[in-house]
Nucleic acid binder design. Structure first.
Lengths: 211, 211
DNA sequence: ACGCTGTAAATTGTATACAATATACAAAAC
DNA sequence: GTTTTGTATATTGTATACAATTTACAGCGT
């Protein structure tokens, strides 16, 4: 499925494929990523392998220790809190300012998707989640604020795969999302911001239970 | 002056020296940074030169166009506004939450520095500015929010060197800073936040005049 | 004079070879 | 048995060689 995307360079291709593995949890936190290994897996030389690792370091998904190598980033409970709090602050800041810019039609579409995905597979649920937050982010007129918010979310992504959710959890999360969408549709700004914040912190708490 | 710092690798050393040149405006916006040139200047091979360029891309100070090379980032008037607005939002968000955490003693020290640097050289003025904003940033209990705020500021740094300020401008900026410090010392939170925001937007406007 | 085309030069992307350092493990000292 | 130390191995950091692509420019035609 990644095959369709044509990359400019091998480095980019290796980067995207490693990124995918990290996000999907196939590479676990703390795992060593040696350059030779990557060369072997993807059939490239060390140069693009190294560059791919540097890009993952930029995303904070990999940590490089000089002369010792690269490791999939590890997050303790405190850092998870910190990341989600930061995300919460940014998204709420955006929503407070961009509330009026959210398109009702996309919101309604999302609501339909959400109702369809209810009681369905987890993948669809994640897609709806991403769309909802992306809709919020896009409401900001400030591209840089958008970018750093996406950056924080990218950092959080792998965490979700390291945790399995109960169907109860999933249902609760879905209903939180529905509430947010409804508040947005009803033009209830303050409520929407509050719910969005609670939803994000809630996500943090569920992840921390596992750790 | 950079010589004192011992770096782990050549790549890091080249990175820091290029960074310095960009921030000081010795490398102008849009300028081509070919790998061979960098090799020649710093006496290293292409590998560390390339890696240094990648690090500058991470900082958004350099833009890489595939198969065409790297160029010092260029900012149009709109992007400058956007960057400063983003910075303003982040610093104000931090100050609103971290107001109580700002140390009075460091603030008083800074005030002394500011009064000493008044009517002195521009370099000292810049140092006071950095300290003030760093003091605000450190007041946030959230390390990630701190980091992304510093990231935005780093992106803005070169802009200042591309503009020469009149002594009137400098005096005005200094007085703005003093007002902020006084508001912080007087525990006038709302006023401090408002002044901080105005100060940052003011900085943006002064830069845009040139562009 | 202007624009097109093709070839040569220059530059980036990739692979590989070499150097410096860290890791692992075995032997010796306690 | 534990710790230390030295050597071999493995891995990262750096340099260089090769491939692919872009850029520059001369030559040609109109």
């Amino acid at each position: 499925m990644d095959e369709k995307i044509k990359h400019f360079s091998l480095a980019e291709e290796v980067y995207h494929r490693l990124l995918d593995r990290i996000i999907k949890g196939k590479l676990k936190e703390g795992e060593k990523l040696s350059e030779e290994n990557i060369c072997g897996i993807f059939g490239v030389s060390r140069t693009p392998a190294r560059e791919a690792l540097m890009m993952l370091c930029r995303d904070k998904l990999v940590k490089r220790i000089p002369r010792r190598g690269c490791f999939v980033s590890k997050f303790d409970s405190e850092e998870i809190s910190s990341l989600f709090e930061c995300r919460g602050m940014l998204e709420c800041l955006i929503l407070e300012q961009g509330f009026e810019n959210i398109h009702r039609d996309e919101l309604l579409e999302l609501k339909t998707d959400l109702e369809k995905s209810k009681n369905k597979n987890r993948k669809q649920s994640l897609e709806v989640d991403e769309k909802l937050h992306e809709l919020v982010i896009e409401s900001s007129p400030n591209k840089h604020l958008q970018e750093i918010t996406r950056q924080i979310i990218r950092q959080i992504k792998p965490l979700r795969s390291w945790r399995t959710f109960s169907s109860d959890d999933l249902e609760k999360i879905d209903s939180e999302r529905l509430d947010i969408i409804n508040a947005l549709l009803a033009n209830e700004k303050k409520k929407a911001v509050r719910l969005l914040h609670e939803h994000i912190i809630q996500g943090s708490n569920q992840l921390k239970l596992k750790t």
